[in-house]
Design a protein around this nucleic acid. Sequence first.
DNA 1: CTCCAGGGATGAT
DNA 2: ATCATCCATGGA
Length: 292
Amino acid sequence: MTLDSGQVFHWEKHGDGFVGTIGDRPFYVEQRDGKLFFLGGKGGLIANYFALDHPLAEICASFPQDAIMNAAREFCCGLRIIRQPRWECLATFICSSMKQVAHIRQISRALRHRYGERHQLADIELHSFSAAERIARTSEAELRACALGYRAKNLLATARLVASGEADLESWSALPDDELRPRLCALPGVGAKVANCVMLFAYERLRAFPVDVWIERILKEKYFTRKPRVTAQHLRDFSATYFGEHGGYAQQYLFHHARKTSSRRRGAAARPRWRRPRRFVSASDVRYDSRL
DNA sequence: CTCCAGGGATGAT
DNA sequence: ATCATCCATGGA
């Protein structure tokens, strides 16, 4: 559920699990019987990436108690906000504007296969995400060949700022939210929404509350029912306070629940419901399995 | 076929 | 501050 929730776009289904890279290390991961089995690299890296130390029960308890939030909380049981590498997260969300999740995955794949490093894991071939330095050396025309469209110019310009060190994404982790956000928004192709996504998914700012078309629809239809003319300012103030200290988590639960249960998706209602695990997977549940 | 998607930059009120 | 328009592409 975590890897299919629209926060990260490069993990691909393989057998009963997923293959992908954490930084520059290839992994296969598979959740089975309340444990997380893996192949490749070290378990500690996985536990950190999947944020298995986040106190999920406490976080979910901090969400507001209302009908919409309760439904999302139950539907998304076990979903975590993971710790993504900064550049990888920033680059993919620059590419995300006016794109469906399925196509963002396609763009991520095109960039990785063209500019990422190739890895071998057992008989599986996979590519890590393209370094900023590598993308900075390409051209806008070449990026457009990856189906980036008008986003190519922004990705290239931001890659060059990051590669040159002018935008030092790692050192920015020490900044408070109200200084980090304007730094991100100053990058080409980064506005309020993408900045909040990067803060939430790559800087562990769990209050950051990205408002995309789905969340805006939920806020207006469910929380501001029959109140036309809600200003963007009002929506910002509301989402910044109402959902509490882990507002970003709440936002991800609302997003994933809405996307997976939307009546527009054929057969969504007939889909078998997620079963609540006996307890959340934690860092002590990570198992290496060479047979995988 | 049509509709719309995890938006941002720019310029006009 | 709020709004209109343009920007490319392909999934549903």
